[in-house]
Design a protein around this nucleic acid. Structure first.
Lengths: 351, 351
DNA sequence: CTGAAAGCGCTTACAG
DNA sequence: CTGAAAGCGCTTACAG
């Protein structure tokens, strides 16, 4: 006996019930069902009840794809970040997702790995899939693709790095001020030879932090000691090791982000240099782990969760009313005092 | 003079060009355009050229939403994790996203905050939006909603925690074995009173790790000292502080995850208890930060990136061919030796 | 209050 | 090789 196999995908994809199915079961037209579902007025109570029963029975769920095709807003926003391995971005992403959910929006996510071509592809893809707006931590804020993307008419909000030639809302922190305060704090501790350590000065926020360092040091008539690598953290420990070998050459380090801070700590520990007595340390970006390092690390804290939730609110506002001109939001940082800077005690209660 | 404002959304949403626009400009039917785009054969070279020109001129991009409605696969998979603030999940997410991108899939992401009702809502939403498959780190692997979700016919892969009553592919690590090895290592260092510290034993992987601890300790005829809180890390430090106040009561700690390890380190440091001489420590979950803590922390490392990329591959396989029966993948862990366990030197080169 | 018609932008058969 | 028709599942006007 020969048994005719069902075509596999037909057999499996149990067709989802449609409006028509519900309408037929309830003995009404599909318009009535549509109205009942969308809470329109003008549906008699009795009919509404029949429709609800049919919906329950069939376990009917509206097909969101079809709804979108009729012009209904997708309630999706896209988020593109360079990486999720950096806690800054993963916490940001969590905050974005939570805030979006509170407003009944879904979040599309993509990781660009700081590669503009990936970023562009993902942004295009998102626009093609009808996101209502985009949150973008751009790898390169002035890439030409941004103009054409922006001209697609969907709103952008630039996070952490503004988009040069595109008029968009943006949100970031006081990178310059936060860095300057940190370095001034080291100076207040009597440090004279302060190294600025980091990488990827092409990123605007990093550049701002370096500027903050520079102005603080120059105002105090101290020497400028900058070791900022081009675009990778690869050689960071190595070059720092070299500097540290000549002890006494520096008496403090300001690191421009959390990865740099990690490298600095590791190099100092490996070289058995005492922190803060021999070399003090303040890093930009606060991490939970700084509470348990040796010693605990004084750091510039960014209000990450606020950045994320504000960014979403700004975007949703923009989606609502497209008229207003672009806004720029700048949030303050906090210097969290711990032991690596030379301060005696922690400024924060235990978590 | 009264100026009639354009209705705002009409004015702004510059209508995207459609197949029809391209067809008209190229002077052909829309079918021909469709075929040209999708690389079908049977399009004369000359016509193909005209079509390509029109597409370029109009900057036409196919409307993905319309394509989906005709039954074309969405090339979207969903990922639901409990949190992105835990590095385990953020690295997992990055790996999932990267692997999916390599296969030309997009990733929908949602954070459940370990709340089953949020998880359910997000899963429903994703199914409604036609994801082809779901990667799920479920807050509660046996919730009833999973059955009906699974019956929607779209494939699931359970990550980190299997889905009890639903026959799905799953992927996780050797939690029991990894934990047992860690505790046995402490025993090999001569530790006699080993505390197991953590929270949320309802999660299957945590429960497995506790079992591993228990069997290791019992085999060595050592006392069972378990301090595992119900479901929050809140009181963790507090209860540990209490235990530590009676020094000598314990001489080692095994922590069940990275958050617990952080708390343990902080409490030990605050109490000025020397690690490892007074109390040794091994934690489940490896973090970069463990390289710069005081002392560096010996930890059970999970192959997080492999979990993520394998999970995606398993899911895509399943999407292709729905026939096969459910697979279960279990990956090994590695004990990364550093100083907190009592070992003299690091087992790993510097990063 | 309710329904038949037309259309969203594409693709899958069917005819040339 | 190419195109007119029908349909994916819904919603927006339009008529009752």
């Amino acid at each position: 006996m020969i048994v005719q196999m069902q075509p596999p995908d037909k057999a499996n994809k149990l067709r989802r019930p449609t409006l028509d199915d519900v309408a037929r079961l309830a003995g009404v037209g599909k318009m009535t069902v549509s109205r009942a579902i969308n809470g329109h007025p003008y549906v008699s109570a009795e009919v509404a009840k029949r429709v609800q029963a049919a919906i329950r029975k069939l376990k009917y769920k509206p097909n969101a794809v079809a709804q979108m095709l009729t012009g209904r807003p997708s309630r999706i926003v896209g988020l593109v970040v360079p990486s999720l391995e950096d806690p800054f971005f993963s916490v940001l992403t969590q905050s974005v997702q939570e805030t979006a959910r509170q407003h009944n929006y879904q979040v599309w996510i993509a990781v660009s790995n700081s590669d503009v071509s990936i970023e562009k592809a993902e942004v295009d893809e998102m626009i093609g899939r009808a996101v209502e707006g985009l949150l973008l931590v751009s790898a390169k804020g002035d890439d030409p693709y941004l103009r054409s993307a922006a001209s697609a008419g969907i709103p952008f909000v630039a996070i952490d790095r503004s988009l040069d030639k595109v008029l968009t809302d943006s949100i970031e922190v006081e990178n310059y001020k936060g860095a300057r305060e940190a370095v001034e704090h080291l100076i207040a501790h009597g440090r004279k030879r302060i190294l600025c350590l980091g990488y990827d000065a092409r990123q605007a926020p990093i550049a701002q932090r370096i500027l903050g360092y520079r102005d603080a040091v120059q105002s105090a008539r101290l020497p400028l000691l900058v070791e900022v690598l081009q675009d990778s953290s690869r050689a960071l420990s190595e070059s720092l090791d070299g500097i540290l070998r000549k002890r006494g050459r520096i008496d403090a380090i300001f690191t421009v982000n959390n990865v740099s801070t990690l490298h600095a700590l590791e190099s100092l520990n490996n070289a058995r240099i005492r922190i803060p007595s021999e070399v003090a340390l303040i890093g930009f970006d606060d991490l939970d782990a700084w509470r348990v390092t040796n010693p605990t690390v004084t750091a510039v804290r960014q209000p990450i969760r606020e950045i994320g939730s504000l960014a979403v609110r700004i975007l949703l506002d923009r989606i609502q009313s497209t008229g207003k001109s672009a806004t720029r939001t700048v949030l303050p940082t906090t210097l969290v005092l711990r032991r690596s800077c030379g301060c005696p005690a922690a400024s924060e209660p235990r978590a």
